[in-house]
């Protein structure tokens, strides 16, 4: 057994252990902390699986922003836990038995998958010339399966609509989430002044690198969103009220541009969502830049929550 395999087994065991802890620990707050740690380690697993793009996404969105979301909810819901009754032991035992059965079936099915495995990697590499981007994952996301990516942007937009629809009637059109205040001379405010310039540069770099190396709109957008959130949480910035035209424009810019480019392709080129080879790279990068902005704003607003305060302070 090589050192790499031993490392992988240890990593898998720790990941599993954290997963178990997340499920069984009685306090919800601890479970969220466990989940964040789990998310960071899973990002390592993705690196071991040679999927660095996914590792970045998992770390930024799965573990990072998802963790912030869960932690915030756990803090606000702290007393709600007390209302729940415990599931009876027999039910838990049978659920455990079923889950184990399911795990066995899944593991069995994965282990007997055919060899050599079918793959689209050669096809994706062969067609990469059409877009002149050399990151195959970006190619799949932006060209070959652009439809899924566009629909998923609409999913994000609908999540925003869904979250906003939970506002109480008097707060409609107001600012999402509570107003945060922090000691202006405190260390958090210091961080919030120091970090965003760096974070924004890193976010843009990750977006830009996405054309040829791991990275892209999601990962860059998540970093930008976290910078914005830092400013919001320290009170340096406030969430914009949801009735503002510009914030709505930013939120739909990504899917909107995608749709427009798609329709232009339908009218003047081969097909919906096709790019003329000469313009493919600038077009895709243009969509990606817009999408990064949209993703950053969407993720930030999803974390901020439903409108709670009227627009005037």
């Amino acid at each position: 057994m090589s050192i790499a395999t031993v490392f992988e087994i240890v990593l898998a065991a720790v990941v599993l252990g954290l997963g178990v802890w997340t499920i069984v620990v009685p306090e919800t707050f601890s479970a969220t902390v466990g989940f964040v740690a789990y998310g960071l380690l899973v990002a390592l697993v993705w690196v071991r699986l040679d999927a660095v793009d996914v590792a970045l996404t998992e770390a930024a969105i799965g573990g990072g922003l998802g963790g912030v979301l869960l932690l915030g909810a756990a803090a606000r819901l702290r007393d709600a836990d007390l209302m729940a009754e415990k599931t009876p032991g027999t039910l838990r035992a049978s659920a455990a038995a079923l889950s184990v059965l399911m795990a066995a079936a899944l593991a069995g099915a994965v282990l007997v998958l055919p060899d050599p495995a079918p793959t689209l990697a050669p096809a994706a590499v062969a067609k990469a010339g059409a877009t002149s981007l050399s990151n195959p994952v970006t190619n799949v996301l932006m060209a070959f399966r652009a439809m899924d990516t566009m629909l998923e942007k609409i999913v994000l937009l609908l999540a925003v609509v869904g979250v906003w629809s939970l506002a109480s009637d008097f707060a409609w059109g107001g600012r999402p989430g509570p107003r945060h205040e922090a000691d202006p001379r405190g260390v958090l405010v210091f961080l919030a002044r120091l970090l965003p310039p760096i974070g924004i540069v890193v976010g843009i770099h990750v977006l830009w690198a996405g054309a040829d190396q791991p990275g892209g709109a999601f990962q860059g957008g998540a970093i930008l969103a976290s910078m914005w959130l830092l400013a919001i949480m320290t009170g340096l910035a406030d969430t914009p009220s949801v009735s503002l035209r510009w914030i709505r424009l930013i939120l739909v810019a990504g899917p909107g541009l995608f749709l427009v480019v798609g329709l232009v392709g339908l009218l003047f080129d081969d097909a919906f969502l096709s790019y003329p080879p000469a313009l493919a790279k600038p077009l895709i990068l243009g969509i990606e830049v817009t999408m990064t902005l949209t993703i950053a704003a969407t993720l930030g607003l999803l974390l901020a929550g439903a409108p709670e305060r009227s627009a005037q302070p």
């Binding site: 040679d50 999927a51 996914v54 195959p136 994952v137 799949v140 996301l141 399966r145």
Partner: peptide, 9 residues
């Protein structure tokens, strides 16, 4: 490529 790009996407 170390990991099929389609599942990654």
């Amino acid at each position: 490529i170390g990991n099929d790009p389609v599942p990654q996407a």
